[in-house]
Simulated scan of single mutants.
Amino acid sequence: MTDTVYFGYQDVAPEEKTRRVGGVFTSVASRYDLMNDAMSGGMHRLWKDRFVRRVKPRAGEQVLDMAGGTGDIAFRLARSGASITVADINPAMLAVGMERAQKRGIDGLVWSEANAETLTYPDRFFDAYTIAFGIRNVTDIPKALREAHRVLRRGGRFFCLEFSTNQWPGFSDVYDAYSHKLVPKVGQLLAGDADSYRYLIESIRRFPDMPTFEGMIRDAGFVNTRVEPILGGLVAIHSGWKI
């Protein structure tokens, strides 16, 4: 790992990024849906539905939903009858998720405070590992990918939903203008927090493009990797298998 990592458009020490990202998500935890609506124009709900369809969870499976504190992905996964562990480094996000689960009458989820880079789960424990809109906020992404590989059983599958680099001419310019100029203002207006929303947009711009990130997944040991761009790569579903 290098001496510095990105935090938005800044390069900071790794421990500083971990601390700052924690502050961002503590700030936005209670407004998680609002945050995602602002960043995606409300389309994140459809993307998450599509993502879970690709994962194809099955009854009896053990699934780890990493960075899934507020439960958005876990609630969808749980409909299959799979056993879901919801893990997040941020206790404020987990608190929101547990409250939402209680209000919806969703029982049986396991809630776990965990760092994606240093998981405490045993080797070869899970059948599937999911992470949605969380990997770009991890301080050491290659280390987190290696941990994902470690905790998966042979034949286990890795799925990641993340913002990416849009490849449609014209649309990319429109979204850049929307995200950089309007999203922080929306964050300030509705949540009183422009800086957190600004960081989240900047973090998208610093995240590796689709081929580069696919290469990182392969480097972690996964095979049969695949990238499914959505809206020209505005977001992408990345997947790989452990053999």
Rank of each mutant, 00 (worst) to 15 (best):
F159Q: 01
E162I: 04
S179M: 13
D140M: 04
Y32A: 07
E147Y: 11
D65L: 08
I131Q: 07
T139E: 12
H238R: 04
V223W: 07
D209P: 02
M98C: 10
M93N: 02
L161E: 02
E99R: 15
G81S: 07
R58F: 09
F51T: 03
V138F: 13
G233E: 03
S239Q: 12
I217T: 08
L119Y: 06
R124C: 03
V151Y: 12
K143Q: 14
G155P: 08
M66D: 00
Q188G: 15
V138K: 03
V63F: 15
I131C: 15
L77C: 05
T26E: 15
K103M: 04
S40G: 05
S112Q: 10
T118N: 13
W168S: 00
D33N: 11
L152H: 09
D127C: 06
H180E: 14
K56R: 15
T120V: 07
W111P: 01
V227R: 05
R54L: 15
S203V: 08
S30F: 00
K143W: 04
Y121Q: 07
V186S: 11
Q188R: 12
F126D: 03
D37A: 05
F213P: 08
A132P: 09
P229E: 03
R58P: 02
S203C: 06
D127F: 08
S30Q: 13
R45C: 00
K185S: 07
D173C: 00
G23M: 10
K242G: 09
I73L: 01
M66S: 02
A220K: 02
G221R: 10
Y32F: 15
G60H: 10
G71K: 08
I73C: 02
G68N: 06
L152G: 09
V12G: 01
G240F: 12
L234Y: 13
G240Y: 13
D107A: 11
D49Y: 03
V96N: 04
R45Y: 00
A177S: 12
V151A: 05
M98K: 15
R124S: 14
Y178H: 14
D107Y: 02
I106T: 00
S30Y: 06
V96W: 05
E16H: 02
